[in-house]
């Protein structure tokens, strides 16, 4: 690396820092999503449903995907009751032919999708030796591989129109391995890596107007992690679903690449690569993550 390249690098780093700092102090303008067509996976419950309501409120047509048809229809009803436009599809995102088929159907019936929210996720919540093999495969199929299929289905259309936004709702477990979360953490780490790659891949096409947002929330009290009992709630309380969605929506509308909810998690990301794992363990114990999954119940399966 020559002198010119090095000085160029330093200059660009400074620029990137300054613009990042400026964003902290200057309130960024929120973009409009009116008229956009927005696919939300896992829209039947939890924050998926709230995202649908938020996007519909802002004037986007929401396309709801979920395996659970009654729950999905209920979301569609709620959106329509709030004077939004919604269309529900039954889709198992872990099945790639299902994803491709229904993506095609959406394109025909609704139009070109410009916003994709990869939100569907599952969790087993058992220690490695207790995990059923099918459970591990399912976790990966839904939490990781589904992102490949949905992106492959919708990104070409976004590239053709030079207009789009891909949002992936991962988890803070995609940055830290947790006790009793071997499969979940691994799958979410994968989603984080995929998202980082996706950013490069979009950049490489040199098309403007396509954005990505990765959201890494702490536990949200939607029932998915029912019974997860961390300590020190005064510093890291479980998130209210609406609050989490508001924070992530703000990130999406201001085209932020990465959103940690709550923001204090940014700080731990800074710590992770510099602290030795023994020291990180003290932090893990402080927040009670080592025992938090002992009382895990999860969502009661109705089916």
């Amino acid at each position: 690396m020559g002198f010119v390249e090095l000085s160029l690098l330093i200059w660009r780093v400074i620029c990137a820092w300054v613009s990042a700092l400026a964003h902290v102090f200057l309130p960024a303008r929120r973009k409009s999503v009116e008229g956009d067509i927005c696919v939300i996976t896992g829209a039947g419950m939890g924050i998926g449903r709230l995202f649908a309501l938020e996007f519909a409120k802002l004037g986007a047509t929401v396309v709801l995907w979920d395996v659970d048809n009654p729950a999905n229809e209920e979301t569609a009803r709620l959106v329509e009751a709030a004077h939004g436009k919604a269309k529900a599809y039954v889709c198992d995102v872990s099945n790639k032919s299902d994803v491709y088929r229904i993506a095609e159907q959406v394109r025909r019936e609704v139009g070109d999708v410009s916003i994709l929210v990869n939100n569907a996720g599952v969790v087993c919540g058992k220690t490695l030796l207790e995990l059923p093999d099918e459970g591990i495969e399912k976790t990966f199929a839904v939490n990781t591989l589904a992102h490949f299929w949905t992106v492959k289905a919708f990104l070409p259309g976004m590239l053709a129109n030079s207009h789009g936004h891909i949002i992936s709702i991962a988890s803070i477990a995609g940055h830290y391995g947790g006790v009793g979360l071997c499969d979940y953490s691994a799958s979410k780490f994968g989603a984080v890596g995929f998202e980082e790659c996706l950013r490069y891949e979009i950049r490489r096409t040199e098309k403007q107007g396509i954005y990505t947002t990765a959201a890494y929330p702490w536990i949200i009290s939607t029932g998915m992690f029912e019974g997860f009992s961390p300590k020190e709630g005064w510093l890291l309380p479980p998130l209210e679903p609406q609050h989490a969605v508001d924070c992530i929506m703000h990130g999406i509308l201001t085209n932020r690449e990465v959103v940690f909810v709550p923001g204090i998690l940014n700080f731990f990301t800074f710590l992770k690569p510099v602290l030795p794992m023994d020291a990180m363990w003290a932090v893990v114990k402080f927040f009670g993550i080592d025992t938090a999954m002992d009382t895990f119940k999860g969502r009661n399966k109705q089916d």
Binding site: T127, G177, A186, F189, G193, F194, M277
Partner: peptide, 16 residues
């Protein structure tokens, strides 16, 4: 994606 997952797996396993 696969290697990120591997890193996550060993981190969880060590913690567990």
């Amino acid at each position: 994606t696969s290697k990120f997952s591997v890193v996550g797996f060993y981190e969880s396993l060590a913690a567990e």
